[in-house]
């Protein structure tokens, strides 16, 4: 295990700050879906890059934890790589790309495809924690609406979608009712992931750095996506499978491969995709030049990661 920098507290934040954030987390867990204000600190990355998530992670991470960081499902994107590197440096913890090995997963906008277990914690990065914001701009009023469970406007938004598009067109950050009491923004995960939040065996923590709010969904809490009786909630579907691993149950990203219209649809969860390929699954385009190039790139990034992490 690499040693953390001398002169930096374990997990970067000072003890007072960690205590303050842990208090907010306890309150958030006690009131599922309720947004707890906290004294968000300046972090060494810009707002919008995960300052909320990184503070939550820094407050709960321990030396024994194994950290995984994903950005839109992928372990190999800039945001994920730099946050992972940050924690390796300031906490000296082990990091991984494998969902099953991780005890702590910080995510930007996805829930891993591999089901998480009770020993794992998922930390979400949240840009706009207030689900009522687009209907009601006043913070004093939204707080009052939460206090009185006055949530009629949420359905006005859904009504408006159906009236204009014939269906609920909201495809990410799809509002949910938590524990039958608080309407919550699930962060900009695709609504494909919403059902995974319901009655989940793992703890889910949400941190919004710019807005300075923390909220949580404790294990085995009901999380219901809002809908109408005659327009029930449904997730996105694809009429194709992952081009690399052939998975038909995962969230697919479109990857443009050349400038003459070539494109691949691949799992957004890079670990899930790699795992399936290692198990011998093959998608329809796995053998094509573009498919091989993409798979090679992903493997190379994974190798680099492994070489950075001697543990």
């Amino acid at each position: 295990m690499s040693q953390p920098d001398a002169g930096v507290t374990f997990g970067y934040l000072d003890e007072q700050t960690k205590r303050m954030i842990r208090r907010a987390l306890l309150k958030a867990v006690a009131i599922p879906g309720y947004q707890v204000p906290f004294a968000g600190r300046e972090m060494p990355l810009p707002y919008g890059w995960g300052t909320g998530g990184i503070q939550v992670t820094a407050s709960i991470i321990g030396p024994e934890d194994v950290l995984k960081v994903i950005d839109q499902g992928a372990d190999d994107t800039t945001n994920a790589v730099s946050i992972r590197r940050f924690f390796r440096r300031v906490a000296g913890v082990r990091t991984t790309e494998r969902t099953r090995e991780a005890t702590l997963i910080q995510t930007r906008h996805r829930i891993p495809e591999t089901p998480l277990g009770p020993g794992q914690i998922l930390v979400y990065q949240v840009p706009i924690p207030e689900p009522l914001r687009f209907m009601e701009p006043r913070e004093t009023e939204t707080r009052r609406m939460h206090a009185l469970a006055d949530y009629g406007v949420m359905h006005v938004k859904l009504y408006e979608d159906i009236a204009h598009y014939g269906r609920v067109a909201t495809s990410y950050d799809y509002p949910v009712m938590v524990n039958g009491r608080h309407v919550m923004a699930p962060s900009p995960i695709p609504k494909f992931d919403n059902p995974k939040m319901h009655d989940a065996p793992f703890l889910q923590l949400f941190g919004a750095g710019r807005e300075k709010r923390i909220y949580a969904v404790p294990p085995h809490t009901s999380v219901v996506s809002l809908d109408f009786e005659d327009h029930p909630f449904e997730v996105q579907g694809w009429d194709r499978v992952c081009d690399l691993c052939g998975a038909d149950d995962s969230y697919l990203d479109e990857v443009v491969t050349d400038d003459i219209g070539g494109r691949l649809f691949v799992c957004s969860d890079s670990d899930y995709c790699a795992g399936r390929r290692a198990d011998g699954h093959q998608g329809p385009a796995a053998a094509s030049a573009a498919g091989e190039a993409l798979a090679d790139t992903m493997e190379q990034v994974a190798r680099e990661h492994a070489s950075e992490d001697p543990a």
Binding site: Y151, V153, H155, V156, Y159, H231
Partner: peptide
């Protein structure tokens, strides 16, 4: 910011109407 229909529907929806039709 929302359509006439949504304006009229807001009260029923706030009172628990959940059938779009």
């Amino acid at each position: 910011g929302v359509s006439a229909g949504a304006n009229i529907g807001e009260r029923p929806m706030a009172l628990g109407a959940r059938h779009y039709g």
